[in-house]
């Protein structure tokens, strides 16, 4: 689900780079505010490699098979490191495998990164709402995972339909978008379920993976609740 080079007008590519630069700049600023910003760098990079590789896993969805995107889960786990992680991952994707492209790197990184950051924000909301039980965490993870991919799908087709000129009136374009969105519902549900399952797995095996990136204060809240 990456837009290749040559499809989008230069202005759209530029706008993509502008939003990606803004999101990355803001993320880096948040990261620099951590007590030891360097500490998470090897971790974020190695986990990015796992997400990169996990996107090669195919889930059979007869008659086709779909591959994982996991940008919602990536946001949930990496927090503010999600944007640099996605940027690095997509850069390598474009250069090594020609998936996506150099001019569209900005657009693609925003398409994936913005929903990932929203998923992170949503997942952190559970501290504020005191939804830190196992069931509630799983439910929030589902919404975060499904929202992460669902929003990315909408943005992706939105950008394509809006920029590729076609003899379609507004109503037809909207109908086409709705149809495409509906077709992606099974995949969105699969990503939501997977995000829940992975989050519950980590909660049991390595809860630090879910709490280390939390905003300052949120972990204290968690430990208070025991």
């Amino acid at each position: 689900m990456h837009i290749p080079d040559g499809i989008l007008p230069l202005a759209v590519c530029g706008a993509g780079y502008a939003t990606t630069a803004t999101l990355t700049w803001y993320s880096l600023r948040q990261i620099q505010r951590r007590p030891d910003p360097h500490a998470m760098v090897p971790r974020a990079a190695l986990l990015t490699a796992v997400f990169f590789v996990a996107s090669w896993i195919h889930i059979p969805l007869p008659p086709i098979s779909v591959h994982l995107i996991l940008n919602g889960l990536l946001g949930v786990i990496l927090g503010w490191y999600a944007m640099p992680a996605i940027l690095v991952g997509l850069f390598f994707q474009a250069v090594m495998f020609q998936h996506g492209g150099i001019t569209t790197l900005g657009v693609n990184a925003t398409l994936m990164g913005l929903p990932a950051l929203l998923a992170y924000g949503l997942f952190q909301l559970r501290f504020v709402l005191h939804l830190t039980g196992r069931f509630a965490t799983g439910a929030v993870a589902f919404v975060a995972g499904a929202l992460g991919l669902g929003l990315a799908v909408l943005l992706f087709y939105g950008v394509l339909v809006a920029t590729i000129p076609a003899n379609l009136d507004v109503a037809t374009e909207q109908a086409a978008l709705t149809l495409i969105a509906l077709a992606h519902i099974p995949v969105v549900i699969i990503e939501g379920i997977l995000t829940t399952l992975v989050v519950l797995f980590l909660l049991r095996v390595k809860p630090e993976l879910l709490t280390d990136n939390a905003p300052v204060g949120a972990t204290a809240l968690l430990s208070e609740q025991g």
């Binding site: 090897p42 971790r43 986990l47 399952l197 992975v198 095996v205 390595k206």
Partner: peptide, 26 residues
């Protein structure tokens, strides 16, 4: 090649355990 009740839990455990392994390695 088949999607059944165990596919997603298995993929989730696979992904999760790779995340844990890489986390510890990092």
């Amino acid at each position: 090649r088949r999607l059944d009740g165990r596919t997603l839990p298995t993929v989730a455990a696979l992904t999760g355990s790779m995340l844990v392994q890489s986390f510890e390695r990092s």
